[in-house]
Write a protein that binds this DNA or RNA. Structure first.
Length: 727
DNA sequence: GACCTGCTGCGGGCTG
């Protein structure tokens, strides 16, 4: 401890003693040495509550005390993805920093104007801010950036893994580049992250021009014992005396989770509502106190705070039935068990979720996986017969145990976010030439895959008279057009991600939460929401408010959403499970029976020998054996030839009409590299916030860079046909 | 066949 401890400033050493720490953690000692002895960028990777914040800030604060930079502005910058995280971290950091010397300034939408005004007047200390609020500073105070950040010696990016290659992550990288260009020197970058599947990608994300120089400080495993069970349930066979799969799972959860703190990940908000309702009913029926509560993003802040506080409160046993809201960030303490209902969408998310349990010394991590499959009938589809949900659960658990998780996809163009950043740079500088904007965003910044040709196309698209976001002055300077001014002026501009339109749900004057507008509702209709039952009284379309009052029955609303991308490696493992013979020890009798059925049907359908199976009149199944991106690409290619195609994990169900050509011939054409128009039947491509300002041609490029893989079509067709049909 | 995240400046009315 001594060598690292000795490097810290006196007030920081004093704080450590006050905490009663007997020693620094390994990652903290290593991080202190790296920060004090080098100028390197670094990533500190450890689980939640692993002491990452202190690992970064103890040495950084010491440096500010002992050797402050010249210039004006905040000494340190912290960027966090959640308001709650910023509030928490500000409290932790304020206890380290003697207030008069180093102010700690939280800055997000809920922070009062007076704190912001004071900080703007005299910027110093540690600024903790969201990407959106930083964006707002660039747009509203573009000329003051040097004054605000001239003295900044490091930027700490919290939860780095949550922003890798997302729209928000690209925005953040763009802002960091623009910050360095404005103050004309690099700022040390420190990423705090959960353990990732591919640390090299994270390094390249943090500092694209010098990824190899980024130092990695990773907590050594020392992982808790893992207890694992996968239980199988069959739905659709409920007779008079047998409960539905939902009731059976709810009963099992009730029996095993009651009395402790747990997280139940139900996969979708609608399922969260269903299970929370059943579990509440079970408590009432047994005259037991309520301890099961729903938690998802459409519920009111007040309700979510209540559930989070109960989870932290050791005296009250609490199980949250939740979506990924409780997967990230905020510290809710250790939970006894993590349950997952239905197959997850990524191994990375499963790992993150599991990390919520087994954190206390000597306590095992517990994962209860529930697989729900349909009762088979003679009419059952091949998807049900192959039990794809169960198979995916097994594949993902296997990969989790092997320590694998999905890497980011760094090749996306992110053209919606590029539109946003073009407007932001023009607003910051009050106008800029096209070549300067290109240089900032695409040469120095994160849009490196955007060529000058594509960039020019994007400019033409948003400068088009109908769009009118930008215009060009006589001297060639790009300026905001009237529509651009209006867009950038409104506060809704700062976020780069899309948010759907919603109704507010109000009961007796109190907000329950929000509902997507595509729910068709009328007075008298019954609802399950926030774990309770309601009847709709009034709907105010203009104000987007729905008034409800308590009721005895209800149905859960529809929340919608986009299906996720399943990685190639997961699909590959699913086929290995179907073709293998292992019977994992963590599976119960019911799920093992389903696995045996799935394997028998797989053999019976003949997929060991061939990838294409005719399934009666006019229908074929293709085993693509690859993930969502590649499988979707083939689906679009076949649709453009007139087939109707349904996508599943690693399979396509193809309907061959009388008008359509022969499937074999079409696949052979694809194999030989014949061009196909993927976008003939692709539907709506405007999935991101600023897509609506882009031409069809640019939207196609964007889709190809992120959601499709046309270059692999010949190879994929070849792999499929190599194990062609028996004939 | 899914989930999550964020938001400024100004004016009006009130209190001390």
């Amino acid at each position: 401890m001594s060598s690292a401890f000795d490097k810290l400033a006196r007030p920081v050493q004093k704080w450590i003693r006050q905490q009663g720490w007997r020693e620094l953690r390994d990652i903290q000692a290593r991080s202190i040495r790296t920060i004090c002895e080098t100028d390197a960028d670094l990533i500190v990777a450890a689980s939640t509550a692993g002491g990452k914040t202190e690992a970064a800030f103890l040495p950084l604060i010491s440096q500010v005390f002992d050797d402050p930079f010249d210039g004006t502005g905040f000494d340190l910058l912290y960027i966090g993805p959640l308001k709650a995280l910023i509030t928490d971290q500000a409290i932790r950091l304020a206890s380290i920093c003697p207030e008069a010397e180093l102010p700690v300034v939280p800055w997000h939408g809920d922070v009062s104007q007076s704190i912001k005004t004071r900080a703007l007047k005299s910027p110093k200390g540690i600024l903790l801010i969201t990407p959106e609020s930083l964006e707002a500073l660039f747009i509203r105070r573009g000329l003051e950036i040097s004054r605000l950040f001239g003295a900044t010696r490091a930027v700490v990016i919290d939860e780095l893994h949550t922003v890798l290659d997302s729209e928000r992550g690209v925005q953040l990288r763009s802002l960091l580049t623009r910050l360095e260009l404005t103050i004309k020197r690099p700022i040390r970058r420190i990423g705090l992250s959960a353990t990732l599947g591919d640390m090299d990608l994270a390094k390249a994300y943090l500092r694209p021009d010098a990824a190899n120089a980024v130092q990695l400080i990773e907590a050594d495993g020392g992982e808790a014992e893992l207890r694992l069970q996968l239980r199988g349930y069959v739905s659709g066979d409920e007779g008079e005396n047998s409960p539905s799969a939902t009731d059976a799972i709810a009963a099992h959860l009730f029996k095993h989770l009651r009395g402790s703190d747990n997280l139940v990940f139900a996969g979708a908000r609608q399922r969260v509502e269903i299970y929370a309702d059943r579990l509440r009913e079970l408590c009432e029926r047994e005259h037991l106190p309520q301890e099961f509560y729903p938690h998802h993003a459409s519920l009111s802040r007040e309700h979510r705070d209540f559930v989070e506080h109960r989870l932290k409160d050791a005296a009250k046993p609490t199980t949250a039935v939740c979506t990924s809201t409780l997967e990230l960030g905020i510290d809710i303490g250790d939970v006894t068990c993590v349950a997952q209902i239905g197959a997850p969408f990524s191994v990375a998310a499963l790992r993150q979720r599991l990390g919520r349990s087994g954190r206390r010394e000597g306590q095992p991590a517990v994962l209860r996986q529930y697989a729900v499959e349909t009762q088979l009938t003679p009419e059952s589809s091949f998807v049900d017969r192959l039990r794809l949900g169960l198979i995916r659960s097994i594949a993902m658990i296997d990969l989790l145990l092997e320590g694998w998780c999905e890497p980011a996809r760094p090749q996306a163009l992110h053209l919606s976010t590029l539109v946003h950043q073009i407007l932001s740079v023009i607003a910051q500088r009050g106008g800029a030439s096209a070549s300067v904007v290109y240089s900032i965003l695409c040469r120095e910044g994160p849009f490196r895959k955007v060529t000058t040709e594509v960039f020019a196309d994007v400019l033409r698209s948003i400068g088009h008279t109908e769009t009118g976001l930008i215009e060009q002055s006589g001297s060639g300077l790009l300026l905001l057009g009237p529509a651009g001014e209006k867009l950038v002026e409104h506060y809704s501009f700062y976020a780069v991600f899309q948010t759907p339109e919603e109704f507010r749900l109000v009961a007796e004057g109190k907000d329950l939460g929000t509902l997507p507008i595509d729910n068709v509702l009328a007075p008298g209709m019954l609802l399950i929401f926030s774990g309770r039952r309601w009847v709709v009284q009034e709907i105010h379309d203009r104000e987007k408010v729905i008034m409800v009052k308590p009721a005895k029955a209800g149905v859960p609303p529809v929340f919608g959403g986009d299906p996720g991308d399943i990685h190639d490696k997961v699909i590959d493992r699913m086929f290995a499970v179907l073709e293998g013979g292992t019977q994992p020890a963590y599976m119960d009798a019911a799920s093992l029976k389903m696995l045996a059925e799935a394997r028998a049907h797989y053999d019976q359908l003949g997929f060991r020998a061939t990838n294409i199976q005719a399934l009666g009149e006019g229908t074929s199944i293709i085993a693509t054996r690859v993930g969502t991106v590649k499988t979707s690409t083939l689906a679009l290619a076949l649709r453009s030839e007139g087939f109707s195609v349904e996508r599943h994990d690693g399979f396509l169900l193809v309907e061959v009409g009388h008008e359509t050509p022969n499937l074999q011939t079409v696949l052979a054409d694809i194999r030989s590299g014949e061009p196909v128009d993927l976008f003939l039947e692709a539907g709506n491509l405007m999935s991101e916030k600023f897509h609506k300002y882009l031409s069809a041609k640019i939207l196609h490029l964007d889709a190809v860079s992120s959601k499709l893989a046309p270059e692999i079509l010949p190879q994929l067709a070849n792999a499929i046909m190599r194990k062609g049909p028996a004939n």
